[in-house]
Design a protein around this nucleic acid. Structure first.
Length: 420
RNA sequence: GUGGGUGUAGCUCAGUGGUUAGAGCGCCGGGUUGUGGCCCCGGAGGUCGGGGGUUCAAAUCCCCUCACUCACCCCA
């Protein structure tokens, strides 16, 4: 096949109307459910100063060190296309003084993210996330409520076969001790694995626990576990979250080896995975980031959030995804020149009444127009021809019932509205 | 960045050295008065990803290149 000269760049894709219906369905469901939990939508820019992500996500993370779309703008500032939403939302939270408006702020955000990675199943360079964040409380009930909301959303999306994994990464006190113990262990155990692994162990030892290499699994299995390092506060926090999830009837699994790729996480972290996604099996990841707002120049403010990958979510939901119905409700078939003008006016009238209306353009035989009408998905076909014009009526065909009736021209809008 | 796989019609794919490259689906038209889905008939649509080489002859064999894809890595 001869390729067009101009194609979309690697790792991005077009969403066509047929698929868009599902995006709308997912977004609408998210807005509806999140509103029930008291969340308001925040829309933040898709680009920020590079420094925001460097400080927020962590210089040592792969995202910041090699996956960002960074460029210099005409004013000489270093700008980056957002690789995730949390840093931007924190920035907006501080900049707009949201901490002064309420003790707890619940925000969500939907939009594209950008990471320069090699594309594969479930991984694009521009992808979309549905993101929710809560600022201002360390109460484990906030963690639990957030997770309950997430699982309710995923459930109503029609996705099943999901596993919720939960862990506690420790706080300022116990996490460093764990990281040091793990690093020491890994330095010894991975000596023979080469420079690349050694560098990873130095940069971010927790990340090694995520490795899929079969040769690493035994080392990981024998590695020190975070649960042995938890202080009382961390242990109690996790226990409380678990108890509340049980009350809500949310199934979960504690995974003491669950880590996150972004530096800012602490305490509660979680991930929702599916077997049927391929290697990129996480449909949602999230956790607590109690130091982040302060790190970005705001007052000390605890926070917790999650991000759902929209492409992965829709892939999982498949046919069961709640699609927004955007098909025409009425299709107008017009025969003859005079009828074309009438069709134009009739379409305008129906649309002004809020009825989704499509018509056949460019004429064509009755048969071909009917075919197009059928394919449009409209439940009603309105026929305009010489016979109808002479009688001052419109023939209304009920496509699903294969029956047809004549309705007075001036009553047609009401007739359709009544029968829809 | 590192590996593996695949590139033939709009889509899914057959065709492994020999006339004008095929199928199914889709698209357009037709099956006599103005009626969709099913069926039947016809039609349009392809520089076989691109370049080079071997050969009398290449979609088919070899080399290069590009794209897509899967996996590592990373993560939503």
């Amino acid at each position: 096949m001869a390729r067009p000269r101009l194609t979309a760049v690697r790792g991005v894709r077009d969403v066509l109307p047929e698929e868009s219906k599902r995006w709308h369905g997912a977004e609408r469901l998210a807005r509806e459910i999140f509103a029930r939990y008291g969340y308001g939508e925040i829309r933040v820019p898709v680009f920020e100063r590079t420094e925001l992500f460097a400080r927020g996500i962590g210089e040592e993370t792969d995202i910041v060190s090699k996956e960002m779309y960074t460029f210099e703008d005409k004013g000489g500032d270093s700008i980056t296309l957002r690789p995730e939403a949390t840093a931007s939302i924190c920035r907006a939270y501080v900049q707009n003084g949201l901490h002064n408006r309420a003790s707890v702020s619940k925000l969500f955000c939907i939009g594209p993210m950008f990471r320069y990675e090699r594309p594969q199943a479930g991984r694009l360079r521009q992808f979309h996330q549905i993101d929710a964040e809560v600022f201002g409380s360390v109460d484990p009930a906030v963690d639990a409520e957030l997770i309950v909301m997430l699982m309710e959303f995923l459930d109503e999306m029609g996705v099943d076969g999901l596993a919720l994994q939960l862990n506690n990464l420790g706080d300022k006190e116990c996490r460093p001790a764990y990281a040091a113990a793990l690093q020491e262990y890994l330095r010894e155990e991975t000596k023979h694995l080469g420079a690349e692994i050694a560098e990873r162990v130095e940069r971010n030892p927790l990340r090694f626990l995520d490795s899929k290499d079969p040769d690493h699994q035994e080392i990981i299995a024998r590695a020190p576990r975070i649960d042995a390092f938890w202080n009382d506060a961390c242990r109690e926090h996790l226990t409380s979250v678990c108890r509340l999830l049980e009350i809500a009837g949310v199934a979960y699994e504690i995974n003491p080896r669950l880590v996150r790729g972004l530096d800012y996480y602490c305490l509660t972290v979680f991930e929702v995975t599916s077997e049927s996604l391929g290697a990129q099996n996480a449909v949602c990841g999230g956790g607590r980031y109690d130091g982040l707002v302060e790190e970005l120049g705001g007052p000390p403010t605890p926070g917790i959030g999650f991000a759902v990958g929209v492409e992965r979510l829709l892939q999982l939901a498949g046919e069961k995804a709640p699609a927004q119905n955007e098909e025409p409700q009425v299709y107008i078939v017009a025969l003859g020149d005079a009828a074309q003008t009438q069709a134009f006016a009739l379409a305008a009238e129906l649309r002004s009444q809020g009825i989704r209306t499509e018509r056949s353009f460019g004429g064509g035989s009755m048969k071909s127009q009917m075919k197009r009408a059928d394919r449009s998905g409209a439940a009603f076909v309105l026929l305009l021809g010489d016979d109808e014009a002479a009688k001052g009526v419109v023939s209304v065909r009920h496509m699903n019932e294969s029956r047809q009736t004549e309705v007075k021209r001036e009553e047609i809008s009401d007739y359709i509205k009544f029968n829809i």
